[in-house]
Amino acid sequence: MRIAVIQFPGTNCEHETLVAVKECGMDGEIFRWNRPEQELCEFDGYVIPGGFSYQDRVRAGVIASKEPVMATLREEAANGKPIIGICNGFQILVESGILPFGDGVRLALAQNVMIRGGEIVRRGYYCAWTMLRHDAEERRCSGSYILRRGEILSIPIAHAEGNLVSSDKKVIERLIEDDQIVFRYCSERGDIISEFPVNVNGSTENIAGICNPEGNVLGMMPHPERAFFAWQLPWKHPRVRGYGPGRIVFESMRRYIEERRL
């Protein structure tokens, strides 16, 4: 089972993402953007890691979305292979139109706005650990394949543009109806509160991650590879050996690939 971790100029999370992939028993390698894109077809799944591809020029993700490797990824997505876009990877999937429906740019990840009591209390870049509620059905999505609906994970975010918006209300309605909303920002008890700090970036419906209608492509703003080992977790968690909640995203990917093969 081979996973390509796609590296664009400006990507900066490829190494820890590859560690997570390998730790879950998958083979993997970092795939530089200017390698021949045909070589991508040999892989069983893909992760587009976080960072600042092309330094977020014009807007986050858009320049990378025009690279030839993304055209190949679009075909592989249509073939049902799993793709997980994390943070900048999510932004690239949205700008390339692979998410949410595969038919064009239907969403934007706009600048964060933190709103409390009707007032904007902060804007822009924010790095913090957040609580996520898994809102999709079990086995709905490649990257949360073995998570039950309603399970809560603690995973950090670090981005300036993660505020998911659409000019078309129907897009959000369709995401909800088709069970494409995979992760939402929630309180420690799992409540969806639309205000900061629970809604950490102002995102519509507290959306932190979505999948495509087929469920094989997942885009999420939080970084599961940074919550992969127990020692990476904040002070409140006991400093134990073993794994953290982010592992389940990569473990899910592996299980998804295994079951698809049967």
Partner: peptide, 10 residues
């Protein structure tokens, strides 16, 4: 420090 990416590199 919320402006700083304190987690990158994992």
């Amino acid at each position: 420090y919320r402006y700083y990416d304190t987690e990158v590199q994992g």
